[in-house]
Nucleic acid binder design. Structure first.
Lengths: 109, 109
DNA sequence: AGGAGGGTTCGAAGTTTATCGAACCTTTCT
DNA sequence: AGAAAGGTTCGATAAACTTCGAACCCTCCT
């Protein structure tokens, strides 16, 4: 457990918990490819290199963009790890701001 | 209470409950203007003519389009009433398909 | 019948979002 | 140091979504 606040994620900008916007979160989750990523993070952090996209043919810049949208919405955290990146769900922030939302989305279907 | 199934909404096409797609629902809800409409329907049906949009300046064709996106996603029902239309949330269908989702969205903020 | 109130649909134009390749940056390995 | 692995960012193009006005449809009212 870190002592640092939720937003202390080096290198890339992460919105603060209080800045999260419901519509932006919903939009981030409204793409099947991005939703799939979120499901992969359900049980814990995953290294980006090990995160398989729905469409395995996409360019790496596109892959990066998918994570960017999720990160900027506050859905995921993206921190450096080794020469790659570690992705995780911002469950804590999401559950406080939008109680029940993430659970409902993850449990759907 | 109607004996007819959920989808028997005259005139305009409504998706069947089993056809609802989570990502489509999330997208429909991801626009502030559309989300606001959903909130107005929280406590019961509203006639379209009485439904005030966030931006009161929009053309009527645009207003109609907002409802169309919500209807096609299965979020709302839109049935004829007199010379106008009656709008209502498809709570039943949404709650069965995506338990907790609507509640979480409505309670947020 | 004719008109007005309320909405939908269509096509065009404007605005976002997605996707890609190229260039660049960091960390690890040799 | 140099090279490779793993990602981000930028600029351009393609695809999707939004918005509007015009045309059209119904229903109620006179």
């Amino acid at each position: 457990m870190s002592i640092l606040p939720d937003t202390a994620s080096p290198d890339l900008a992460h919105p603060q918990e209080q800045e999260l916007q419901l519509t932006q979160v919903l939009f981030a989750l409204s793409d099947p490819g991005r939703l799939d990523i979120v499901r992969q993070l359900r049980d814990g952090p995953v290294e980006m290199a090990n995160c398989n996209l729905m469409d395995p043919e996409v360019a790496k810049s596109t892959k990066s963009h998918l994570f960017k949208v999720l990160r900027e919405a506050g859905v995921i955290r993206n921190i450096p790890k080794g020469r790659g990146r570690l992705l995780s769900l911002r469950r804590d922030a999401l559950d406080r701001r939008f109680p029940g939302l993430l659970e409902a989305v993850l449990n759907a279907n």
